[in-house]
Design a protein around this nucleic acid. Structure first.
Lengths: 118, 118
DNA sequence: TGTCGATATTGACGCTCGTCGATGTCTGGG
DNA sequence: CCCAGACATCGACGAGCGTCAATATCGACA
């Protein structure tokens, strides 16, 4: 409960393509919050590692070494990504498995892209 | 070439779709730098205002009021966006006209999207 | 030349963020 | 019942960011 109140998965980062019409302050804030979660090299690598891992999921122990950060730091980054609705957390036994939420990433991409696709 | 070469417009934020294969540390850093420039409500609104403005360009005086920030702050944000290769600056007479660089935004969207198109 | 207006730069402030070590909290096994 | 291991939380530190007021710069015009 550090700050935010956007606990888990609000999915829709925004709406219109951003370049079509002026974005509303509220939408800008929501989109910026999701982008802030993405705007970190370690978190981008974690997201990529999780997505590319076997079965589309990975536990913390799979991620600590590749990114070269301490376990608390990796857990912190993963929490940020989960809170932003970019990852899901599934605790099975002793391990916590993280998996990608493709919709969130796609909605961000759609909000940024200028050439809209069907 | 390890650091500090993002002076003006390096356009390509990254390359592969991020979810296909683990992103390299260097690519993660480059993409994160572009995303950091985007991850601010004021800058998103400025970007949107510029893109939606008549002729696809706008000067600082057109932007100060809509975003509700002081002129130095707006100039600062615009500089950040220009340095990230997201906007171009064209000084004509006393006014400075900013315009969108669509390629950069599209390459970011392409790097984030999971459903790749042609 | 001198003034005015548009924009950029500077310096400073408070706040947020990324990182770590230390510690807490669970779960499974002996 | 207690230990070992996986993960989360806490507290702290330094760095970076967003914002503003004050000031500098630069072009147009009288």
């Amino acid at each position: 409960m550090t700050t935010a109140l956007h606990e888990t998965a609000e999915a829709q980062a925004c709406c219109a393509p951003l370049v079509a019409a002026p974005i509303s302050p509220a939408d800008a804030d929501a989109l910026a919050r999701t982008l802030k979660a993405l705007a970190d090299p370690a978190r981008l690598r974690l997201l990529s590692l999780v997505a590319a891992h076997d079965g589309g999921e990975a536990c913390v122990c799979d991620l600590t070494d590749p990114v070269g950060l301490s376990q608390p730091t990796v857990s912190h980054h993963l929490k940020v990504l989960v809170d932003a609705g970019l990852l899901t957390r599934d605790k099975r036994g002793v391990w916590a498995y993280y998996a990608l939420v493709p919709d969130t990433l796609d909605s961000v991409a759609a909000a940024l892209g200028t050439q809209l696709r069907s």
